[in-house]
Design a binder for these strands. Structure first.
Lengths: 225, 225
DNA sequence: GTCTATAACCGGATAGAC
DNA sequence: GTCTATCCGGTTATAGAC
C-alpha cells in the first residue's frame, strides 16, 4: 500500500499558530485519515458508492460518524480519493510497457504485476468494479483521458510487435481486455472462487499456480509461448 | 430471454371463483410482472441490492411503487428471482460440455454462447457481478451446490482431455475462471470498453471480432488452436 | 387489483458542547 | 480536534380508499 495524497482542508486554520505540538497533531490526523480510508475501501468495495453508508465506514474505522465528515467533507470526496488511487496503481503496473525488450517478458511482467495487485488489494479492485458497473459516473473523464491515453499507447506498441512478426495478429484491445478481466477476476470474484475452492481462500501456492496458468495461456494464445 | 418461473402468492385467493375473465387478469398480471422484472434487472444492475430502490424500479417499470410490493412481497424476493434466472442461463450455455465431441468445438461453443449472453443480457451479468462482489450473501448456497457441481463436472471432462493428450496440461479451474472473466467483462465493464471505443458502444462487427479474438487466444493458449 | 397516503425507520450532513 | 444530538430528506413496506 502506497502513501496516499494528503487532503487537508484545515491546514489554513493552523497557519498562524506557533507549531507547539503540530507534529503530534499531524500524526494523529494522518493516522485517523488512514484508518478512515482503509475502512472506506472495504465498505465501498462491498456495497458501491450508493449502497455504502458513512455510518458503516465510521464503525469499521472505529471513529464517530461526525469525524468521517470532518476529515472528508463528503462521501463522494472519500470515494473519489480511493478510486483514483487504485487506478493509478494499475497504470504503474505496466509502466515499462513501452521499452524495446522482449514482448513475452513485458507481457508476463504486466500480467504478474496485475495479478499481484489483485491479491494485495482486492478491495480496491472491487471498488473500481462497482464504479464501472454503475456506469463510471465519477470516473468517465479520467478514463477517457488518462487511462485511454495509457491504453492506446500500449496498443501502438503491440501493433508494432505484430508488424514485426513477434506476436500473432490479434486485436490488441481484445487482448488487453482479457488481461484486465482475468487478473481482476481474482479480486472481484474472489468470493466465488473461494466457494468453488471448498469455501477456502486460495492459498499462496494455489494463487501462484493460477498466476502461472494465466500467464502461460495468454502468452501461448498470442504466439509468445 | 426465456419465460421466467411464475411467482403467484395470490392464486389461492381466486381458487374458488368462477373463472369469469381469469384469462384476462392473468395476462395483465404476467405483463406487469415482466415489466417489473425487466425494470428491476436494470436498476439492480446499476446499483446492486442495497443501492437500488424500489421507488426507482417502480418508476422504470411505470407502475406505482405499491404495486411492486404487491407483485413481489419484498425487494429481496425480486432480486433473488432475477439472480438465479441469470445464472441458470449461464449454466445452460455449456449444457453440451460433457459429450465426447472435439474439445476445440466444445470450448469454442461455450465461449461463444457466453459472449452472446453478455451481449444479449448485460444487465443480468452486472447484477450477478454485484452479487458476488458483495460476498454472495444470497447466493452462496446456490453456488456451492448447483454451480459447483456444474463446474466440477466440466473440470473432470477437461482433466480427461488432458490425460488423453488432447489439451495442454493447464489447471482447468484457471481456464474456466478466465472464460468467466473475459466473457462477462464485455457486459460488466461494457461502459469502460465503450469509453475506450471513443464513447461508442461496440458495433456488431466489433463485437464479433472481439468474440473471435477471445476464442482464438484461449483455444491456442491451451493447445487447441 | 390498483394506487394514494402514511407509518416507521435510516441516510448524509451539521450544530454546538466539550 | 472530538463527538453527541439532531435536522431533514429518502427508504421499505403497508393500510385502506377506490
Amino acid at each position: 500500500m502506497t502513501p496516499l495524497k494528503n487532503a487537508s482542508k484545515q491546514d489554513s486554520k493552523n497557519a498562524g499558530k506557533p507549531a507547539q505540538n503540530g507534529a503530534h497533531k499531524a500524526a494523529i490526523r494522518q493516522e485517523n485519515e488512514e484508518q478512515i480510508l482503509a475502512a472506506a475501501e472495504k465498505v465501498f468495495a462491498d456495497y458501491g458508492f450508493k449502497g455504502a453508508t458513512t455510518a458503516q465506514i465510521a464503525e469499521v474505522a472505529n471513529v464517530p460518524k461526525a469525524n468521517v465528515h470532518y476529515y472528508f467533507n463528503t462521501k463522494e470526496a472519500l470515494y473519489r480519493r480511493i478510486m483514483e488511487d487504485v487506478c493509478d496503481h494499475w497504470l504503474e503496473a505496466a509502466a515499462t510497457f513501452d521499452n524495446s525488450a522482449d514482448p513475452a517478458v513485458i507481457l508476463r511482467g504486466y500480467i504478474e504485476s496485475k495479478m499481484d495487485l489483485s491479491r494485495a488489494r482486492p478491495d480496491g479492485s472491487r471498488l473500481w468494479a462497482h464504479e464501472i458497473i454503475r456506469g463510471a459516473k465519477f470516473s468517465s473523464e479520467y478514463i477517457s483521458t488518462t487511462v485511454k491515453d495509457w491504453l492506446d499507447s500500449r496498443v501502438v506498441v503491440m501493433r508494432g510487435w505484430i508488424k514485426e512478426g513477434k506476436m500473432d495478429a490479434v486485436e490488441p484491445y481484445s487482448l488487453m481486455y482479457m488481461i484486465f478481466a482475468t487478473t481482476q477476476h481474482y479480486a472481484d470474484f474472489g468470493r466465488q472462487i473461494e466457494i468453488f475452492n471448498n469455501d477456502q481462500a486460495l492459498s499462496d501456492a494455489q494463487f501462484a499456480e493460477a498466476k502461472e496458468n494465466v500467464v502461460r495461456i495468454i502468452l501461448k494464445g498470442v504466439g509468445l509461448g
